[in-house]
C-alpha cells in the first residue's frame, strides 16, 4: 500500500470505530459539557459572569479544551489492543500510522473546540467580536493540541498506557501554545481587524504547528518499533 491510501484506510477505520463506539464520543461530549457547567456555576454564584475579562474568558476556554482533548487523544493509542500494532507493523509504514493518527486527532480536536465554543457561548457568554481571528485561533489551537498530545500519547502508550504520564509529559510543552492561544483569543475579543501583534502571534503558532508534526514524523518510527 502506498502512503496515502494507508493513511486513508487507518483514518476511516478510526472514524468508523468512533461512530460505532458512541459511548466514547458521548463521554467526551459530556466531559466538555460538565466542565463548562462547573465553570458556569462557579462564576454564576459569584455574580461575575458579566465582568469576565477577555483574558480570563480565553484562559478558561482553552483550559477546558486542553483537558478534554487530552482525554480524547489519550484513547487514540491506548485503545488499540497490544497485538494490533504488530499487525500494523506488517501492513504499513510508521509514518502512515502517525499521519493517520495526527489527522484523526486533528479532526476530533477541531470538532471538540468548536463544540466547546458553542456550549461556552450558550452558557457563559460569547464576547467574541472578531470571528476571523477567533476561527484561525481555534484551527491553530486544535492543530497544536492534537499534534502535541498525539505524540505524547504515542510515547505514553509505549510506557504502559499511563494516562498520568501523558499529562506529565505534555503539560510543560503545552505552555507556549497556551500563551499564544490565550493572547490571540483575547485579541479576538478585544478588537476587530488584524493588528500587527495578532499576525505575529499567528506566525508563532504556525511555526509550532509545523515543527511538531515534523518531529513526530521523524521520531515516531523509533517510538513505535519494538
Amino acid at each position: 500500500m502506498n502512503l496515502f491510501s494507508s493513511v486513508k484506510s487507518i483514518l476511516v477505520k478510526d472514524l468508523i470505530i468512533e461512530f460505532r463506539n458512541r459511548y466514547v464520543l458521548g463521554g467526551i461530549l459530556l466531559y466538555v459539557f460538565s466542565s463548562v457547567l462547573v465553570i458556569y456555576f462557579a462564576l454564576q454564584y459569584n455574580n461575575s459572569i458579566q465582568e469576565l475579562s477577555p483574558v480570563v474568558w480565553s484562559v478558561l476556554f482553552w483550559l477546558i479544551i486542553l483537558f478534554s482533548s487530552v482525554n480524547a487523544i489519550a484513547n487514540s493509542f491506548f485503545r488499540e489492543p497490544e497485538g494490533r500494532f504488530f499487525y500494523y507493523y506488517w501492513l504499513i509504514s510508521p509514518q502512515a500510522l502517525i499521519l493517520a493518527k495526527l489527522c484523526y486527532n486533528f479532526i476530533f480536536t477541531l470538532g471538540l473546540s468548536l463544540l466547546t465554543f458553542g456550549i461556552f457561548s450558550l452558557m457563559v457568554n460569547d464576547p467574541v467580536v472578531n470571528y476571523p481571528v477567533f476561527l484561525i485561533t481555534i484551527v491553530l489551537g486544535g492543530t497544536g493540541y492534537s499534534f502535541l498530545f498525539t505524540t505524547m500519547s504515542a510515547i505514553a502508550s509505549r510506557a504502559g498506557n499511563n494516562a498520568t504520564l501523558m499529562a506529565v509529559l505534555g503539560f510543560p510543552l503545552v505552555i507556549p501554545l497556551i500563551i499564544f492561544l490565550t493572547k490571540l483569543s483575547a485579541a479576538a475579543i478585544a478588537s476587530p481587524g488584524f493588528t500587527e501583534e495578532t499576525v505575529k502571534n499567528i506566525w508563532m503558532l504556525l511555526a509550532f504547528n509545523i515543527v511538531q508534526p515534523t518531529l513526530a514524523l521523524i521520531l515516531f518510527p523509533y517510538i513505535w518499533r519494538d
Partner: peptide, 9 residues
C-alpha cells in the same frame, strides 16, 4: 525520542 522532541519545542 522524548528528549529530542521536548528540547526542540
Amino acid at each position: 525520542a522524548y528528549n529530542i522532541f521536548s528540547l526542540v519545542i
